[in-house]
Design a protein around this nucleic acid. Structure first.
Lengths: 263, 263
DNA sequence: GCGCCGTCAATTGCATACGATAGTCGGATA
DNA sequence: TATCCGACTATCGTATGCAATTGACGGCGC
């Protein structure tokens, strides 16, 4: 297990030590990160890399995140790793079990539906706001992003997965609302986890097409239509997640709950 | 300043050392905290106390939160304090400036409006869900809470302020959605900060009355009416915050921005 | 053979120590 | 006298060491 984690992180960073102090390649130009990108403490770097690894589904739900293993790999102390884990825990993508170590969060089916439901609400709001006042430069950024997604189509892997999520974050940013962006970031992150846990495989083509449709709908300035497209897109994503109870064993505790109540 | 902080924390805890390891008096039975309350690490305790101090407006926006001062006071190491500060920062109620220490976040007017706008959306959703399926036990909890608020009316201070916020968190919890609760918690927290920064004074009576109206509206099972009451309540809260630009000096940077653009 | 208890290894929780950085104060110079 | 420069102090960022907790293994009694 520790070896697997080590391998993943090595592949991501190509040797950790030269990563420290550098700004990460792409994908961190988004708001929130951008304002801090000039200075990057060790803790910050660990945070970003772990987050990226999780969102790209390199680290799957349930993977143990031993402080020692991560610290050794990144050639930093456990202190820095802990800081990163605390932040990730606050975002809900890492579980922090006292004295038993951290692990990538494993959303239950119930939580998954909960998150998706909230996501629909948040992103519907995003669309409403954008229809009202998205300018030319906004559309340019969206189209640029979709181009990147298309370029990454052949990848069928990490990059494509991440870009799909970041499209939605970009939409939220374009509303200019920091708070809304923040929440959308979080639900999108957790949706990535959900997909990683339940979905069979990621199909980037569909996502890109649907993103293009969303942009088109925004151009049309038709609130109802745009909102409808977005909700259909999210439904499609949720459908791909195959959130039907029979598949994908839920937590043991979930199962045992039923037995406990009959006792 | 350090003395002030020390005084506040002392008054809150009545001597920190005997607090460690104990479960805090009230108000931490809410979901999220509740699941972890049996065991409380040092970092957790510091987190809760600081959070409480901030939400009760004992620690006002802008107050410097020196790691050393807090650590000395609580008789813990800076390590534990840092953990707490990182979490508070993740929730947006503490600003963490690199190498310059933490301080209680100072929401700008713009952010304040942004938060309130989001809060309206989130809490409208809460109401919609509750009208659909709030049961008897739920109403009981709400009424119990309002009674506590009334009992605290004479207080005109910390307790009253906190209870007013927790009413809204309780509403969110009753929806059964963890994610929604989480977000409501955050916006309510930040609204407390906003009120602390901009509002002249807290008027508990209004809040309690309005809370009672909300419960009544929920009983009526009339979605539109209930939603309307809630939105009016939030408008009233925002109004009390007096978010008009002329009052309450914004950040220096906000002011200088105008001059910079004319240069 | 089965279950219980004590000991041990592994890993986290916390504290302390050291190095780095930012802000401040005083002196030198123009 | 005003300005600039350098040392100093306070505070943070990070590493490391030790104590505490957890889970596992093996031995003992039943």
């Amino acid at each position: 297990m520790a070896t697997l984690l080590y391998t993943i992180l090595t592949r991501m960073t190509g040797g950790a030590i030269e990563v420290l102090g550098h700004v990460l390649p792409t994908a961190f130009g988004l708001l929130g990160e951008a304002t801090l990108s000039e200075r990057s403490s060790r803790s910050e770097v660990v945070y970003r890399l772990l987050r990226q690894a999780i969102l790209e589904q390199a680290l799957k739900p349930g993977t143990k995140l031993s402080e020692d293993t991560i610290a050794d790999h990144f050639k930093v102390s456990r202190t820095s790793v802990r800081g990163a884990l605390v932040r990730l825990n606050a975002e809900g993508i890492v579980d922090l079990r006292a004295n038993k170590g951290a692990c990538v969060a494993e959303p239950t089916l119930e939580e998954a539906r909960d998150i998706f439901s909230l996501r629909r609400m948040l992103e519907a709001e995003v669309i409403r706001r954008l229809v009202a006042d998205l300018g030319t430069s906004g559309f340019k950024r969206l189209e640029q992003h979709v181009r990147e997604e298309q370029a990454a189509l052949s990848d069928h892997g990490p990059l494509s997965i991440r870009l799909a999520g970041e499209f939605h974050i970009l939409l939220a940013e374009l509303t200019g609302s920091q708070a809304l962006t923040r929440f959308v970031r979080e639900v999108v992150s957790r949706c990535s986890l959900i997909l990683a846990r339940f979905a069979r495989l990621h199909s980037p083509e569909c996502a890109v097409d649907e993103h293009i449709q969303i942009i088109r709908a925004l151009r049309s300035k038709d609130i109802a239509a745009a909102e409808k497209i977005m909700l259909e897109h999210l439904d499609a994503v949720e459908l791909r997640a195959e959130l039907n109870p029979d598949k994908a064993e839920p937590d043991i505790s979930e199962i045992l709950k039923r037995y406990a109540s009959e006792n």
